[in-house]
Design a protein around this nucleic acid. Structure first.
Length: 461
DNA sequence: TCTGGGGTCCTAGGACCC
DNA sequence: TCTGGGGTCCTAGGACCC
């Protein structure tokens, strides 16, 4: 059976979300191409506004290429993630007010189980569409004009595909029984879990569309792709997708990484960076009341080849010094002579309780004696357990941290009021004075260290 | 100035235990 | 002891998603 008419799932996707928030908060950008993403040498595009997409700018595209494609007058902004999160929360609350079963997939995307709603809209022609249009109007009203696209269908996969069919600000309903007619003409990439690699492999078998895929036997798919992916492909090609809407999932890993502006060969710099990453991870673990047993170091070489090295501790920890020492140990085993373009640190094997003691041969060993064991790190306060690291750290990072002002950032000036950073460099920063409530004002340039200029929180929504 | 950052899931081989 | 097999944990890498 391709569909269960008892299930009714809505997928909502905020249109060009980051760029739309920027255009909302900066009236001078409305109607103009806006690209949000990394502005450094190695940045990529997070979101391009629809005006920028006309010129070919796309998510995940190198920023350098987006700059080549887009005309003068395009705004290239680094993100204001606080503002995006704030607006996201507003939208998710609206969804949760409509049904208790809301699965937030990302900052701009969510599934809603409409069958679980207090007053389910049902499949009736017209009524469901009106329900969706009311939802979109409520979102637009509460967010200062942001638009979203929604799809409603009997499964997550079909709902997501439906939401993509009429963007932006569209509503598409795939009613029970209509699934295969919609699904089969689409390219295989439409199936959840089919990316470039799988699509290329399927193409070698002459499979281009989902309809083609549905004609391949399950045993052939399992032989080619393995049990999990093979059976999944077979089912999804028939629109059989029972995945439930899951309100909350427990985190399995936490990681943090940085791509350097230029490749780094200096181990002192890498170790300082690792310390910074370890401290950040520790803070996030503490914030989530979690502890981790496995530490993973990730390194991307100059040629973009990527390796990971991981090690599991006999106990769970949240201590930055423990995470760092294990990370340093793993990093020590890597060849960095050709230079690293990226260094990352991650933790997994998360548990809610610290277990900083371990049973070995029936004897309980406490952290204090762990240093005597090979390959087991010490437990000590802060980064003090790595001699000299803090001292080395600041000079090593001097001149490397971005510092200063980032384009798009919200600021306040004592005389001129609220604005945002239009551009910066050479010790100067240019600010445009405007906000969601105030029309485009003047552009003024200040010294980057002007004491009257300070970072400001994003406008509230 | 090619290629971010945060995740999830799966596979495969080896260790180790029963 | 010519020798099998299941289960689980660990590590490394790959594919995919937003």
């Amino acid at each position: 059976m391709a569909s269960d008419p008892g299930r009714c799932i809505l997928h909502l996707d905020l249109d060009a979300f980051f760029a739309a928030v920027e255009q909302r908060d900066k009236p001078s950008l409305r109607g103009r191409p806006v690209v949000v993403g990394g502005l450094g040498a190695r940045g990529v595009v997070s979101t391009a506004s629809y005006e920028a997409r006309v010129f070919g700018a796309r998510s995940a595209m190198p920023m350098s290429e987006a700059r080549r494609r887009c005309p003068a007058g395009t705004a290239f902004l680094s993100g204001r993630y606080e503002a995006y999160r704030t607006t996201s929360r507003v939208v998710m609350e609206i969804l949760r007010s409509r049904s208790p079963l809301v699965e937030q997939v990302s900052v701009d995307e969510a599934y809603v189980d409409l069958a679980a709603a207090e007053d389910p809209p049902g499949w009736e022609e017209g009524r469901l569409e009106a329900w969706c249009s009311d939802l979109l109007a409520q979102i637009q009203d509460a967010t200062g004009g942001l638009t979203a696209s929604v799809g409603v269908a009997t499964s997550k996969m079909m709902a997501k595909l439906a939401s993509e069919m009429d963007k932006p600000a569209g509503t598409t309903v795939v009613r029970p029984g209509e699934e295969l007619g919609v699904l089969h003409p689409l390219p295989v990439r439409a199936v959840a879990g089919v990316g470039p690699a799988t699509a290329a492999r399927l193409r070698t078998f002459g499979v281009e569309t989902v309809g083609d895929l549905a004609r391949v036997s399950e045993s052939d798919l399992v032989a080619i792709f393995g049990t999990a992916q093979g059976t999944s492909l077979h089912r999804l090609a028939r629109a059989q997708d029972e995945r439930p809407v899951v309100v909350e999932r427990e985190a399995k890993s936490i990681s943090s990484e940085e791509t350097f502006e230029t490749d780094v060969t200096d181990r002192a710099v890498l170790e300082s960076e690792l310390a910074r990453l370890a401290e950040g991870l520790s803070r996030r673990l503490t914030g989530a009341s979690l502890f981790a047993r496995t530490i993973t170091v990730k390194a991307r070489h100059h040629d973009f080849s990527t390796v990971t090295r991981s090690a599991s501790l006999p106990f769970a920890t949240g201590d930055p010094a423990v995470i760092l020492r294990e990370g340093l140990h793993l990093l020590g085993g890597l060849d960095v002579s050709q230079g690293l373009r990226l260094l990352g640190l991650g933790v997994s094997g998360l548990t809610a309780h610290a277990q900083e003691e371990l049973a070995l041969d029936g004897v309980l060993l406490h952290p204090e004696v762990l240093p005597e064991l090979p390959d087991v790190v010490s437990v000590g306060p802060g980064t003090g357990s790595v001699p000299g690291l803090l001292e080395r750290r600041e000079p090593a990072l001097a001149g490397r941290r971005p510092g200063g002002w980032s384009t798009g950032q919200d600021v306040a000036h004592e005389q001129h009021g609220a604005g945002w950073v239009w551009g910066s460099g050479r010790g100067r920063v240019t600010v445009r004075f405007e906000g969601p409530g105030t029309p485009p004002g003047p552009v003024r340039t200040f010294a980057a260290d002007d004491p009257e200029l300070s970072p400001a929180p994003p406008p509230a929504w």
